[in-house]
Amino acid sequence: MADRRPIEQTLAQVGRPELLTVPGASPAKINVDSLSFFYGRNQALKDVAFDIPERKITAIIGPSGCGKTTLLRVFNRMYDLVPGAHAEGHVLLDGEDVVSTRNLLELRQKVGMVFQRPSPFPMSIRDNVAFAPRLLGWPSARIKTVVEQSLERAALLEEVKDRLNDPAASLSGGQQQRLAIARCIAVSPQVILMDEPCSALDPVATTKIEDLMSALMREFTIVIVTHNMQQAARVSDFTAFMLMNPEGRFGELIEFASTADLFNRPQDDRTEAYITGRFG
């Protein structure tokens, strides 16, 4: 077990005592420390530092182009696909550096991701969930239980248990997104990153995903990027507000606090302007 320091302590260590607004001694799962990110020569993030508490839901909000998704994609090194993209600084997952790790496969098993588009694999519902466990060489008995458990935990099993062999593309958009979540938790991640998971869904499907997130919080650390401030306020425990620096054209973390504090007592004028709808 890596050390789980109280969040106050780690925040003090990274030299950002002004972020000490986070109440409650939740241990940090991910420490982001002076993280900068570049697409080739263009800087996309500068000096982002905050701690993501374990088994809580942390929302990242901000206007388009502020680097929310870029930040999220650092946590599982998804940016490796983009030529010329590189990160500086540190992102510690249980004390181990994500930015410099060589073991991407292990990292991505620990840090799962759910995307805006559910991208069902072109195969049956069952195979969608079983795909990764099979490729990882798990015994078939274990895969069978994992498929059922994952669908159950993703609140999808009831709806699909009689048609597990149907193509995944036959599911509705909301069901596909829950299938993507089931697929993700099948490989037992510790962190689940969600990139605008509800932006393509109707309100009913959105509610289902949000309920699901609250249930999953007991087992997983969840980080969600969302355009939707109401959604952040509804589901998250902590909220990070990001903004694009108008001179540098890079994204910055403006404020990180418990969701209640950030929405009720924002410390920064820009945060207040954003959440009260004066821009963005």
């Binding site: 998804m78 588009r117 991208s119 072109p122």
Partner: peptide, 27 residues
């Protein structure tokens, strides 16, 4: 094939060549 499929496969911690051959190629 939309890049979302590739990313979804890679995000599960699967090696790139297996995503290419066993996910992208069948699609």
């Amino acid at each position: 094939i939309p890049s979302g499929l590739r990313e979804s496969g890679l995000a599960l911690g699967l090696p790139r060549w297996r995503v290419s051959l066993q996910l992208i190629l069948p699609a």
